[in-house]
Design a protein around this nucleic acid. Structure first.
Lengths: 261, 261
DNA sequence: TTAATAGTGTCTTTGAGACATTATACT
DNA sequence: AGTATAATGTCTCAAAGACACTATTAA
């Protein structure tokens, strides 16, 4: 029998509402480093379902146009960036935004079938939390604490996937630099790795390693104005290099345990 | 202004069709090794748009229930497996299926807004191609050749992403074993790596390396019945091991070029 | 007998990690 | 002074890769 798929598409083309609707949302796992902790942006929901619960920022994708006909179609990354700005204020400009994956189990939203496209955003540490225009409350929360909260929908799973992606990407990409402002010191970069991986790293070895990976960082030639708050020499300042992949990679310790069941 | 997002959700809950519909499809990049080549399953489209073009197997996700009320809701991986079976026959049972990503640029489908969730499937080499129940034609095509075809929609991009994902995953996971049938020899495994990466590997070093990674493969204790077609000793046979991550990883040569712009 | 393949051994180079050392700046 | 940090040096061990070599089987 041919035509089953083709017929479905044909129907869809001529009467797009012949099927029960599927809604598409974007949710964003926005990560930053604050106070030496990896933190995630959570918003408090004002509406049902899960009213009062903490959730990842997100919302419905604008399809061709909205009901009032005024809004243009938007790409998925655009939608993610828009939701972030709407719910956490325009001050939050992620330096990196990538797709994390899609979550579409039936029943994940009690109202209807919803497919959520999750995005992962990295931002440099921000001075303060910014309750946005859209959400009742928006707050940076340490991921260890967020993992223990009863997040709305399947956001706990999405958060866990996002954190694992971030941990993994720090190994073989220069994305740690997306968590710091330029220019930065090697110690600031090490802080990022320690916060995301959640384990201390040997300062000396880390330093030599970072400088030995071609294209990871680029010296600016200048130093910090002063030494650290508790003493020490002034540190050299660096910019991001031009590498897109770290080679050799900066592998996190203790991969062995995770590798075997 | 609060409530913008909440209102949208509220509306969606009470009148899910207040918005222009967004359709959700799954598309599958199904890879196998045939004749020493990495090949992808392509189907020929019978319907508009792109009638007559080659495309990845895929189709619409069944939401809550279909229009006739008989079909149950399905999870996304289920939908991917179903499309594969419908379009390439039930003989094609992937030994690995993972989500690749979602593609939702406005205009990627000329009819309406369509978000496609792409899946990546690995299958052991099959004796023959199997035109399925659903598609007019289904054919295994070497990826090098498929990349030059004018595929429907943005399937060329999806295919490229899938191939790159496969190449990358062979480095740090034991997924190469998903391309072979058990029991297998180290040489068969090397064939997989060579086909996917597209470069020759040193047989001796590869052999020692594979056996040295804990949990990658597990000896069965037996040998092949006969030597190779052109001579050589009989090879030991192995099963997949219990590792989920290869440590240390099997890095492909020439990562350096890709790392710098 | 010849050729191809399976599997192992050896050597060199690179890199990771443990640890020590020097220099600088804050209290 | 005492202490913390930046940056570099040294040593050891693991692993990647080049290459050689033996043993086994088919043509």
């Amino acid at each position: 029998m041919d035509g089953t798929d083709g017929t479905r598409e044909f129907l869809a083309a001529y009467d797009p509402r012949a099927y029960d609707p599927v809604a598409v949302t974007v949710d964003v796992v926005a990560l930053t480093i604050r106070d030496g902790d990896l933190q995630v942006l959570l918003i408090r929901r004002g509406e049902q379902p899960f009213a009062g619960s903490w959730a990842l920022p997100g919302g419905f994708v604008r399809p061709q146009k909205a009901a009032d006909g005024t809004k243009a179609a938007e790409d998925l990354p655009q939608a993610a960036a828009r939701e972030l700005a709407e719910e956490a204020g325009p001050a939050l400009r992620p330096s990196h935004l990538e797709q994390l994956g899609s979550y579409g189990a039936p029943g994940r939203d009690p109202r209807m079938r919803v497919i959520s496209v999750a995005y992962l955003a990295f931002a440099p540490g921000l001075p303060e939390a910014q309750p946005g225009t859209d959400a009742a409350d928006a707050r940076w929360t340490p991921v260890a604490k967020a993992a223990r909260l009863p997040l709305a929908f399947d956001h706990a799973r999405i958060l866990a996937d996002g954190v694992e992606r971030a941990r993994s990407k720090l190994e073989y990409t220069p994305l740690a630099t997306a968590f710091v402002r330029e220019p930065f010191t090697v110690s600031e970069l090490r802080e990022v790795y320690q916060s995301v991986w959640g384990e201390p790293l040997h300062a000396g070895n880390f330093h030599r390693k970072v400088l030995s990976v071609p294209g990871f960082v680029e010296a600016t030639g200048s130093h910090t104005e002063a030494g650290g708050p508790r003493g020490g020499p002034r540190a050299k300042l660096y910019r991001r290099g031009d590498a897109t992949l770290l080679h050799p990679a900066l592998l996190r310790p203790a991969t062995e345990e995770a590798a075997r069941p």
